[in-house]
Amino acid sequence: MDPFSFDPARLEALTFDVFGTVVDWHGGVVREGRRLARGRGLKVDWSAFANAWRAKYAPSMDRVRRGELAWTRIDDLHRMSLEETLQEFGIGSFTEEEKARLNLAWHRLDPWPDAVKGLRRLKKRYIVATLSNGNVRLLVDMAKRAGLPWDCIFSAEIFRRYKRDPEVYLGAIDMLGLKPHQVMMVAAHQDDLRAAHAVGMPTAFVRRPLEYGDPKKKDLTPEPVFDLVVDSLEELAGRLGA
C-alpha cells in the first residue's frame, strides 16, 4: 500500500501542534498584558502587541537554525522577542519581575472551547501527544493548568531542532515506535502540515479563525494535500470515529 495514501484504520497516534491549534495564545497574551497595564495609564493595543510578539517567533528560530544563536529554548527566545516588542510599543515601565510574568503567559494559555473534550475522545482510541516548538516545562505547565490530557509530550527541545525541520517529526515517530503513516499531524498551520506530509505523515488541518484575534488575519483555505479539514478537535474525533 502507498504509505502516502491516508487510511484511518492504520492510525495509532496523533501529534498536535499546540500554540493556536489547541490553545489560544493571542487571547492569553492580551489578557496578561491588560492585567499588567491596569492602573498605569498605558494606552496599548494589546491585540497588536500580541501579534507583533508572535511575529518574531519564526525569525527567532531561524537565527538558531543559521547558527547565529546556540540552541535556545522557546521560553528564552520569547523573552528576547518580548524585550524588542516592549521597546517597539514604547512600554518601559514594567519591572523585571513583571516582564518575567508576561513572558510566562505562554505557560498559562487557555484551550479552545472544543480542545479538551476533543482530546479526551481521541485519547480513548489513539495515543495523543504534543509536537510543539514549546519547551518541555512550558508544555507541562500549560497541560496541568488547562487539563490537556496528553499521553506524552514531544517538544523541539528534546530533538534540539525546531519544526519545520524533518528531524522533529521523525524523532517523535521513532520514539513512539511507529511508522510515519501511523501518526497523524494535527495543526492549524499549513506550513507545519506541509512539513509533516513531506515525511509521510497523514495530516489534519484545524481551522482556527480567531488565532490572531481577527479572522481577516488568518488564511483558512486548506491545501488539497491535507487529508482532513475540520473546525474543531471534536469534529476531528468524529471524523476518525473516536
Rank of each mutant, 00 (worst) to 15 (best):
V64I: 13
R101T: 10
F89R: 01
V18P: 00
K216S: 15
G118N: 13
E83R: 15
M80Q: 10
R101H: 12
K217M: 15
R125Y: 06
M142L: 15
T95Q: 06
V186H: 03
K99H: 05
A115T: 15
I173W: 00
A204C: 14
V199C: 08
E83F: 11
L42V: 09
H181A: 03
L122S: 04
D219P: 01
L11H: 01
R108P: 00
D219E: 12
S93N: 08
A129T: 03
S232R: 08
D114C: 07
P202R: 13
I158H: 11
R10M: 12
N135E: 09
A9L: 13
G67W: 09
I91M: 05
L139R: 03
E98N: 11
G241I: 12
W71R: 13
M142A: 12
E32R: 15
A9W: 03
R208C: 07
R10Q: 15
A188Q: 03
D7G: 02
P180V: 11
W46P: 00
R164D: 04
Q190G: 10
V30A: 06
G90A: 15
R161A: 10
A146W: 10
T72I: 06
V168A: 09
A52M: 10
S47F: 01
L82K: 08
W106Y: 14
A242Y: 06
R125W: 06
A146G: 06
V136G: 01
L109T: 02
Y162K: 08
T221F: 09
A196D: 10
